[in-house]
Design a protein around this nucleic acid. Structure first.
Length: 352
DNA sequence: TCTGGGGTCCTAGGACCC
DNA sequence: TCTGGGGTCCTAGGACCC
């Protein structure tokens, strides 16, 4: 065996449910559904996750809690508790950083790890043991030449396993699968590809990138082809991610029709977004308002601020002005306020 | 199964300027 | 009066991901 660079993808198994069960061991073995405020009778709330016992009754994440309650009346319903997941995630990432490897955090329950070794399986097994010992949480580890391969490999490793997916076995493992098995191709693009006669990863890999560019644009078309070949980024970025923007939105249990009430909600959302931005020391350059009308028609309007701001009153005024450009002639089920942050100027460093 | 909340990136078209 | 080509900024929407 020779020493070389590997990318590992570490993916916690059933992260949210696992954290909840750590705190409530008495619920182990019972069907548990986590979502919203934990009230399964409240409409327009969906499950963030469900344990295997709940899944056995047909409950799935993304399913309305009321449906989950009907399918599994004995389930325990718990509210989501983001700070608890944040704290558990911190401990997992700290455990990973203790390894002689580079760690790129990818959300609460995932990380990419770059390491130079002659035995990636041994490293993966050591990571699984350490995470379990330090946090009580199970994870799966994918091994690849790049992030795309490692990410798919961790999915194939689940639950609680290790899988290696590299250029060597890519065709054997992936070619027979549908195109939406690739990380970055979802249901919509998969359907459009099928319309062009491209159903499997093998067929997409054999397609003409120029032809794909004509159908999907100059960036996306060739990128889909690239994914089918098993290519992907292999650079581990250890510096913390700088968020591009931020948003807050609320779906109402009952539709809103009163204009004054709608404006009050938008103002409140703007205030929260401004407070979040201030807490992160970020400057706001653009504001967008999102309105979802009943039954489910979503529209957005945005405006670039004349002057970048950190001021809550300023942002609220701008958000209300954007709201004023909507025709609020139908009942409203969701309101959202999103902002873009000023980014540190990268254009100078990007030039040759 | 009437469909959450929080993100990122890409595309297309229009305005405006030279 | 009719018209080119390029560049940039902005907006709205769509697709994907967790």
């Amino acid at each position: 065996m020779s020493t070389r660079d590997w990318i590992l993808h570490v993916d916690l198994d059933q992260f949210i449910a696992a954290v909840e069960l750590l705190r409530r061991p008495e619920l182990r073995g019972r069907p548990v559904v986590v979502g919203g405020s934990g009230d399964p009778t409240r409409p327009r709330t969906v499950a963030a996750t469900a344990t295997y016992e709940a899944r056995a009754h047909g409950v799935r994440s993304g399913m309305p809690l009321r449906t989950a309650l009907r399918l599994c009346p004995d389930a325990v319903f718990l509210p989501t508790d983001p700070p608890a997941y944040e704290a558990a995630s911190e401990r997992v990432m700290a455990t990973l950083r203790a390894f002689p490897a580079e760690v790129e955090v990818w959300g609460w329950d995932e990380a990419f790890v770059g390491a130079r070794t002659d035995d990636p399986e041994a490293l993966a097994a050591a990571i699984r043991r350490a995470v379990l010992a330090e946090t009580g949480l199970s994870c799966s580890v994918g091994i690849g030449d790049n992030k795309h391969q490692a990410k798919l490999a961790s999915g194939l490793a689940k639950p609680a396993g290790v899988f290696r997916l590299t250029g060597e076995n890519w065709a054997e493992v992936m070619y027979r699968r549908p195109t939406d098995a690739l990380w970055g191709i979802g249901a919509k693009i998969s359907r459009r590809l099928a319309g062009l006669g491209l159903r499997t990863v093998a067929e997409l890999a054999a397609a003409d990138p120029a032809e794909l560019a004509r159908h999907f644009g100059p960036t996306n078309g060739p990128w889909y082809h690239w994914l089918a070949l098993g290519k992907g980024e292999a650079e581990i970025v250890t510096t913390p991610w700088v968020p591009r923007g931020h948003s807050r939105e609320t779906t109402f249990a009952a539709d809103l029709t009163d204009g004054t009430e709608i404006a009050a909600h938008v103002a409140a959302l703007a205030g929260r977004v401004a407070a979040d931005a201030a807490a992160g020391n970020r400057v706001i350059v653009r504001v967008a308002v999102k309105v979802r009308f009943a039954p489910f028609l979503t529209r957005t309007r945005q405006s670039t601020l004349p002057v970048p701001t950190t001021d809550a009153a300023e942002l609220t005024r701008a958000a209300l002005a954007v709201l004023g450009r909507f025709d609020l002639d139908r009942p409203v089920r969701l309101l959202g306020v999103a902002v873009d942050y000023a980014m540190p100027d990268q254009s100078r460093t990007a030039l040759p």
